[in-house]
Design a protein around this nucleic acid. Structure first.
Length: 490
RNA sequence: GGCGCGUUCGUCUAGCGGCUAGGACACCGCCCUCUCAAGGCGGAGAUCACGGGUUCGAACCCCGUACGCGCUACCA
């Protein structure tokens, strides 16, 4: 099996890549890579109303961003294409000819209204068991004549009457069994000639020689139907693995109301792909009892469908943020600079020329930022005080810290220390300023907070001495002066 | 209604007949400390949904019940 594993991820381009879909893709990918197999991307675009090229492109982009690469599919080619269902009608038609010839499919002339009312009646009596197979008793010859005469019809599968329970081993859930009573002669091809999902999927999976179907468990109940189609086609039945749902914080289906649901939204919110991949994987899989943070290669190494959990998982945005912070801190300063520079430029704090010129300065800033970052979008507010000539002092901070009667004295002392210190760097600054509280007989915290508010505008900021160095002597002194003026005026 | 799946700390999970039920996030406390973080240490938090069995012994095996979810379409 290790040799020729072929799996596929088959999204519908009716929207962007969902968190749930992304996890399904990750598991398929990890499984293929673990076994040295082939990961196929197929676009199930049979719904013409809702499928768009934009969505398809967005899905490809999101998959790539996550670091998932496919061996066959759009933009990758492959020998089992095409990889868009809308381009595979010939295959579905051909398979139908085979099924017709072997007696595994028959035309049904019942109208939708007819079926609907039959269903109602049966349901009221309790125990609706599906289509009553009325058209199955029409002779092959009669049926052929009516089809030839263009009488509207669908094609249904002829489920073998003597078929026992449909039993299969799900790689995640184990032995599963479905009584044949629940399986009616469902529709394969619609009146307009298009294939239904359960039919198209199986024809494709068969032709693409998929060995393992790893998908959401909303398809679990479809599986026995699909197995019937595989059997009718005379094809080997692949192994199935059904993944449980990812739910929102309210325990219900993921919805936009409770936060982002698309992969690209998380990218835009400042999450790193490695972190999202790691987190999503964790929602239903564990390498072992205590590994939380792991790389894609560790995932590939240790991935095993038998370790995928059966129960639904609630998406926890806080844990994702924590994990993202972990990955942020693993970034080299240069890598973080590469990621934050565009944001600084976009915020108007820097031009791209300045970013280039001040590269070393940015590299020095990066580690300070990384340590307190959970999302990239927190960068700008954290560092903006470094980029203007003057800083706006938060009123609350002013009331709390700059109202002390000794503040003026403290700031004056700080100002002169700052003017004299050589060189103007973190180490010297720290030595010089740390001597002040004792000399002035004030609490260190009182003085440093006063300086912090004066220089950064806030009671919460990056480390003080580092900030002063990054800011430079001129701007630092200028802000101390402004604060002194403010304090003396009140 | 029928059929199927699921149920271990608030959340994600480990566990695959014998464990003081382990880890992670979040939470609380202490340490570090110029604030915030990060980091270190510690704490609280799960009668393993409930009820019956099987067994010397059950979170793990079996049967029910409850709750949740899925399918039951000429949606995917």
């Amino acid at each position: 099996m290790t040799q020729d594993v072929r799996v596929r991820f088959a999204p519908s381009p009716t929207g962007h890549l969902h968190i749930g879909g992304a996890r399904t893709a990750i598991y398929n990918w990890a499984f293929a890579r673990h076994h040295g197999g082939t990961f196929i991307l197929r676009i199930d675009d049979t719904d013409p109303e809702r499928s768009t090229t934009e969505n398809t492109l967005a899905i490809l982009r999101a998959l790539r961003w996550l670091g998932l690469d496919w061996d066959e599919g759009p933009e990758a080619g492959g020998t089992r294409g095409p990889y868009f269902q809308t381009q595979r009608s010939a295959s579905y038609a051909e398979a139908l000819v085979t099924l017709r010839a072997s007696g595994h499919a028959y035309p049904c002339f019942c109208s939708a209204e007819e079926l609907e009312s039959k269903r109602e009646v049966a349901r009221v009596k309790g125990g609706y068991a599906g289509y009553d197979r009325a058209c199955r008793s029409i002779s092959v010859a009669d049926a052929a004549v009516r089809v030839e005469a263009k009488e509207p019809h669908v094609w249904r599968i002829a489920v073998p009457q003597d078929r026992g329970d449909v039993v299969f081993h799900d790689a995640v859930r184990g032995e599963l069994s479905f009584p044949p009573a629940a399986l009616d002669d469902f529709v394969l091809v619609r009146t307009d000639g298009t294939p239904t999902y359960n039919y198209a999927t199986v024809v494709d999976d068969a032709l693409m020689e998929i060995t393992h179907v790893i998908r959401g468990d909303d398809h679990l109940s479809n599986t026995p139907r699909q197995i019937l189609v595989f059997e009718a086609l005379g094809h080997d039945v692949p192994t199935f693995a059904h993944l449980s749902m990812i739910l929102g914080a309210d325990g219900k289906r993921l919805s936009k109301r409770l936060g982002a649901v698309s992969v690209e939204a998380y990218r835009d919110d400042g999450f790193l792909p490695e972190a999202l991949l790691n987190y999503l994987t964790l929602l239903g899989f564990a390498l072992d009892g205590d590994t939380t943070v792991f790389s894609a290669s560790q995932l590939i190494e240790g991935f095993d469908l038998e370790r995928v959990s059966k129960n639904a998982a609630i998406f926890d945005a806080e844990k994702l943020e924590w994990l993202n912070g972990v990955y942020m801190r693993e970034l080299t300063p240069e890598a973080l600079v590469d990621r934050m520079t565009p944001l600084l430029i976009e915020a108007g704090l820097l031009t791209s020329d300045e970013a280039l010129a001040r590269h070393d300065w940015l590299v020095a800033l990066a580690p300070l930022v990384a340590q307190r970052l959970k999302r990239m979008d927190e960068v700008v507010p954290m560092v903006s005080f470094l980029f203007a000539d003057d800083v706006e002092i938060d009123p609350a901070a002013r009331d709390k810290v700059l109202s002390d009667s000794h503040v003026s004295v403290m700031l004056h002392a700080t100002r002169s220390a700052m003017s004299d210190v050589e060189p103007y760097d973190t180490t010297s600054l720290e030595a010089a300023l740390k001597a002040l509280p004792e000399a002035l007989d004030v609490k260190p915290k009182a003085l440093f907070q006063a300086v912090r508010v004066a220089v950064t505008g806030s009671t919460v900021s990056l480390p003080l001495f580092e900030s002063l160095e990054l800011l430079g002597r001129d701007l630092s002194v200028r802000r101390i002066d402004a604060a002194i003026a403010l304090v003396d005026a009140s």
